[in-house]
Design a protein around this nucleic acid. Structure first.
Lengths: 194, 194, 194, 194
DNA sequence: CATGAATGAGGCTTCATTCAT
DNA sequence: CATGAATGAAGCCTCATTCAT
């Protein structure tokens, strides 16, 4: 509904820019409104409150990304190949959108516990995709049959996330996209049945 | 110096409890003072400002932990064994101190960028310990000679951190200490030369 | 700009009253807001901070006074007559506004060095007006040709200021406006060429 | 009594230095104590409270100055000569003690109304000396018989004070002692019977 | 739909003073 | 006499949200 109105995405995109350039705690509603070219009050016609902007931001940006991933890896290829595709897609996304990388890896983590719980809800979709790959890998005997799915998922997500955060913190001095393959190899090595 | 005065640690311990029980943004100085059993102003005889309490908290708790780890793994054992000791020590620390686990895994991450940079300085000591183990493992041929140290470090740290955060977020429903061994095995599998 | 908005002067007038009645150090922002009939936060829509209220107060009240004086004495009359007009205008201003007299002669002097420097900037305009009169008097030979302008200025300003301060400190028990003429005579006697 | 103890003057001298170098509002009791080489608490063995230090400071420094003046001008000379001696003594005092000049002309004026009233009590002794000179001058017919004593006193004090304050504000760039004679001449011109 | 002026709660920090040693 | 660690009251300012226009 609201989401089809042009100002909805306009405000979210403004929020990404403002947060990336000013930091989470300096991203006042009035600043986002000015960046979006609307009045402060207009924000509240599209979002319940400030937290709602941030949740929606994460849902729109990461939610659509997760769906893409899900479709991208549907059917074709082995679990090993799918994992590579996923990591590559993840690193490509961050590499392509400088502002979004800063916001998701650094700034949004400063949000309070409530907001982080809501963000985790969105991430659960991502974790499910990871779980699907792991289970598929175990069934196809690519991965060890006694591989603990939760641990493997935490390893994959933790490694990708830490790699991405380090890269952003180092001011993106190197090409993160080139890390997809070696990261993938390390993970697969750990999971492989032998 | 300051650190030998009993009130210094008294205030830090109070801060851990107050932050864990009320959350980062609800941890007012007055609350910490009351918990420590001192007057508000007394805090400022031992700490420059509120941020200084939090930095000191992290330095005292994690800094000493890192030193312990460093000494614990000095000399004895293979890199593989040392990595296990480190993971066990990390999980034991969090498991033994419920409040500290919440503070370091969840609450302190809400701090602003300045504080997080200072926290990262402390963590660098931890990352150095990890690096030492990795390099030792490569030299002893336990780990693959073409293992990228930075990637391996990010994999180790990311996996441990994500495992710990998930555990805290799940309200510590399971024994995280039991995860040390399987986490270790997964990591070693990934690094092993073959 | 701001200055045309009614609340701007409303807040400044409130500040004069609150400072006069409570003293400089007891003039909290919340008290000024209440006196002005606005919320505390509204103050900060019109002033950068508390100091800005006080500077603006002085600029508005004295600044406009100085401009008035400047225009009043433009052209018409001798230097001697102009000096009288100036002294009368000054005493009339204080006499007409009890609160303002207290604020400018007693309370605002308690401000810190920064604020006092800003206040001095405003006063420089007044000193320039005085200087103009002195120079004119010297040129017209009303005043001695070897009269030191700086000294004469300090004598005029010092005498007026001390007279006013004494009057306020004596709780305005006598009519200060009646002092304009004798003060003027004394000063002119001192300056006269003979 | 207390005043004969060496630490009494030690603390007052420390206060002058601390206030001159840090400003009135940055002259904390602890800073004065450190400068005096005593413990904070020791201050309160010699002074009732902080205000008492400042009043005592003014009493000791200006009080003794006023007594000196009073004796210096006793008997000898005309009123005109006495006025010159007084102005010279005043300017010499400020010129000889840089710190004291800053404290009395700039910093102590920031004190609250109560303290300033107490300071005025001390100054009354000075004003009495001035009054004596004026009355003597009127009786000897040096000054006009219809000279208003209060106005003349305010003129003398206001001029001296403004001259001194301007000199301190201009960072004492010129020799204030050289101004005694011309200031004196201007005042005498104003008062002279003719 | 859109505006933007107005609201008002809430917390970190300073520093004069005390008093047990 | 002297110390100095401890006290605790008190205020400026920010910014998410509302609502009259």
């Amino acid at each position: 509904m609201k989401k089809t109105k042009p100002k909805y995405m306009q405000i979210i995109d403004a929020a990404v820019i403002v947060i990336a350039e000013n930091g989470y705690h300096q991203a006042q509603v009035s600043k986002i409104a000015k960046q979006a070219g609307v009045a402060d009050g207009t924000i509240y016609l599209y979002f319940k409150n400030k937290e709602d902007i941030l949740i929606s931001l994460f849902e729109e940006k990461m939610g659509s990304f997760i769906e893409e991933i899900d479709q991208m890896i549907a059917g074709k290829g082995t679990a090993t190949e799918k994992l590579l595709m996923m990591i590559e897609a993840h690193f490509n996304l961050l590499s392509a959108d400088h502002h979004l990388a800063i916001v998701t890896q650094l700034e949004l983590r400063q949000s309070n516990k409530d907001l982080r719980l809501r963000i985790n809800d969105v991430l659960k979709g991502y974790l499910k995709v990871i779980d699907k790959i792991i289970i598929e890998g175990k069934e196809s005997d690519e991965f060890s049959s006694d591989l603990d799915v939760r641990l493997a998922r935490q390893m994959i997500f933790g490694t990708i996330d830490e790699t991405a955060t380090s890269w952003v913190m180092n001011e993106e001095k190197y090409e993160i996209t080139k890390l997809a393959s070696p990261v993938h190899r390390l993970l697969i090595n750990g999971f492989r049945s032998r």
